[in-house]
């Protein structure tokens, strides 16, 4: 009975989506909606980093890959990127830290330990604790690209993995400076976590400044496809690229592109 109400036969089956842990929650929510309106379709969303998205999509292990950055030159031969949303990377501090804004040069100096005390950038007399992300994360790549630094230049006090680990490090030690996805930071700030999103180069990190392109550190959140895409996966991809998922994208504090 239910199956009879379903659309074309070509849109049934299991769709495998893997990759970036930043993109995964959006796709997982979208998948729930999609499954509800398309009985017979099962969508499996697994996170494991952008690189997994690249690998799985190019080897065909996954139908769709998720990456939280643009495709690199050598990747465009095998893969096509479809931009799902835009995100920014912003610097986060503890709410008790009086520093409200930093510019690019100050961030470079802090991350290379030329500046080591908060009072040098208008804060309290306290040693800065620099939190950096672990190797291979796109947040790290995007942030270092903005600063024009190689990871070997960065002198960190703490190396962390997930976005939430950065937030908890800042909450646990108020002298810590870290950087995370604006989506994650906004959601945490809204939930009452004592953090502050720092004004960077005079631009406030908000969904609006990401949308109009004025915020200096932004990145696309992409869905990537390999050489062949099954009809079922293509139908789900079309749904992801439609305006129907704007609500879901905004719920996760990312910026819809269409």
């Amino acid at each position: 009975m239910l199956l009879a109400g379903c659309g074309g036969k070509e849109s049934s089956g299991t769709i495998m989506v893997t990759g970036s842990s930043t993109v995964a929650p959006v796709v997982a929510d979208a998948a729930k909606e999609y499954e509800a309106s398309h009985p017979g379709v099962r969508i499996e969303v697994q996170s494991g980093g952008s690189l997994r998205g690249i690998t799985d999509a190019s080897t065909g292990v996954a139908d769709l890959g998720m990456i939280s950055r643009a495709l690199k030159q050598d990747e465009t031969a095998k893969l096509t990127a479809h931009t799902l949303a835009m995100d920014g990377v912003c610097v986060v501090l503890h709410q008790d830290n009086p520093v409200k804004q930093l510019d690019r040069q100050q961030l470079i100096d802090i991350y290379t330990k030329t500046i080591t005390n908060w009072k040098e950038v208008g804060g309290n007399n306290a040693t800065i604790v620099v939190a950096n992300k672990a190797e291979g994360r796109s947040t790290l790549e995007v942030f270092l690209h903005y600063l024009g630094l190689d990871n070997a230049d960065v002198k960190a006090d703490v190396i962390v993995g997930e976005n939430l680990h950065v937030i908890h490090s800042v909450v646990g030690n108020p002298h810590t400076i870290g950087y995370v996805s604006i989506g994650t930071a906004s959601a945490e700030e809204k939930a009452g976590t004592p953090i502050r999103l720092v004004i960077t180069d005079g631009k406030t990190p908000t969904m609006e400044s990401v949308k109009d392109g004025s915020f200096p550190i932004t990145r696309p959140l992409n869905i990537v496809t390999g050489a062949e895409t099954s009809p079922a996966a293509q139908a789900f991809l079309d749904y992801l690229m439609s305006t129907e998922i704007h609500g879901i994208v905004e719920k996760h504090f990312f910026v819809p592109v269409r």
Binding site: A126, V129, N173
Partner: peptide
């Protein structure tokens, strides 16, 4: 550890990363 032990260490040794 992150929420309790690290802040306690910061009280003993301010200026260190705590972790």
């Amino acid at each position: 550890g992150l929420m309790v032990v690290v802040p306690a260490i910061l009280r003993i040794a301010p200026g260190t990363p705590g972790q």
